[in-house]
């Protein structure tokens, strides 16, 4: 029996994606071995893979991973709590929406990472400054999508619920939240991704620990192969986290 066309299409896309990545690795390999690119700039991928296995085997990554994920968890929690609450409150009033939505959208558009020195001055070189900047950056997509989610609920649903006697609690729990959920989940996913980016980026710029810090310190001591191994490691972690969050988002969106 052949797979249904949809499933086959999905497999085919996966195959093309895998082939693309394999092609990229091949170009890397050829560039490092045949085309004479300086080993300090581009180490042999085989050496990088060996270093990666060594890193995974020895478990030396655990402290840095813990630092980064701990910062991420703290920053994201703060941003979720603040963003959902702010977004909901703003969405309740057309006036507040008119005032604050453009304001938040404007602030979201500026590269907040530029304020990292300020965050470091306020919160020090430790995890606190990473948590603060991660939370500040991921606050905006969460807030904006919460405003859009609650603001975009079809009036007819509210009218219908009211006509059947829905209380404020009923309206919130059974109408507003489920109606707004898909848009809010997208905001949460975007906030999660931006928090991760901001935290790793700020670790590379000013910190004592974390995966970003490790990559930069390896670069500074010219240990290029382990540096690449760590980069691959961070990409893998980011991909896993992203897949996890996207799955949660898709679950929340089903049946629409």
């Amino acid at each position: 029996m052949t797979a249904p066309p949809k499933a086959r299409d999905a497999w085919l896309s996966r195959l093309v994606q895998a082939a693309f990545l394999a092609g990229l690795a091949l170009v890397w390999y050829l560039a490092a071995t045949r085309w004479g690119v300086n080993r300090l700039l581009l180490p042999n991928p085989v050496a990088v893979a060996q270093d990666l296995f060594e890193i995974l085997r020895s478990g030396e990554y655990i402290d840095d991973l813990e630092t980064t994920l701990g910062e991420l968890a703290a920053a994201f929690s703060i941003a979720v709590a603040g963003g959902l609450a702010t977004g909901y409150l703003v969405s309740r009033s057309p006036y507040l929406t008119k005032v604050f939505e453009p304001l938040f959208a404007g602030l979201y558009a500026i590269p907040i990472i530029l304020f990292l020195p300020l965050f470091v001055l306020f919160f020090g070189l430790g995890p606190a400054s990473k948590i603060a900047i991660g939370a500040a950056i991921s606050f905006f997509p969460i807030t904006l999508n919460t405003i859009a989610g609650f603001g975009g609920v079809d009036r007819l649903y509210v009218t219908a619920a009211r006509s059947m006697g829905a209380s404020d609690y009923h309206l919130f729990r059974f109408v507003l939240v489920p109606a707004a959920l898909p848009v809010i989940l997208t905001g949460l996913r975007m906030g999660f991704t931006t928090a991760l980016l901001a935290i790793i980026a700020s670790e590379t710029l000013a910190s004592f620990a974390g995966l970003g810090h490790r990559i930069v310190s390896l670069a500074e001591s010219m240990e290029i192969a382990p540096m690449f191994a760590y980069i691959v490691f961070v990409i893998a972690i980011a991909a896993i986290l992203n897949a996890f969050v996207s799955t949660l988002e898709a679950r929340g969106r089903r049946n629409r």
Partner: peptide, 12 residues
């Protein structure tokens, strides 16, 4: 009780 023109059932 009301019945509305458009689909006022909750899609979720």
């Amino acid at each position: 009780a009301f019945v509305f023109q458009e689909n006022a059932l909750f899609p979720w």
